[in-house]
Amino acid sequence: MCKDFLGNHVMLEIIDVLQRPDEAENEKILATPTLIRQSPGPARRLVGDLGEPDRLIQLLGLQDHIRPRQ
């Protein structure tokens, strides 16, 4: 989905808290799933099932970064 909207300008790391509890600790994650937008700053966290792409983009504040749909 990221690719769809943002092309190759995106870097997404998926962390399984069960495999990497130390990472969860570092990021102080309580709930899963949590999506953290680290860049562009300031950081922003979304918690819960990610529903509609449009709303997600709005919440992440990435409207200006969207690659025009083909």
Partner: peptide, 25 residues
């Protein structure tokens, strides 16, 4: 809660992160 990273709730979730951390600790 750290005020700077107040989460936005977008959908259903569970406390898997917490549980993994407690388990790890």
């Amino acid at each position: 809660l750290h005020p700077k990273d107040e989460p936005v709730m977008v959908g259903d979730y569970d406390l898997g992160g917490l549980m993994a951390r407690v388990n790890h600790a």
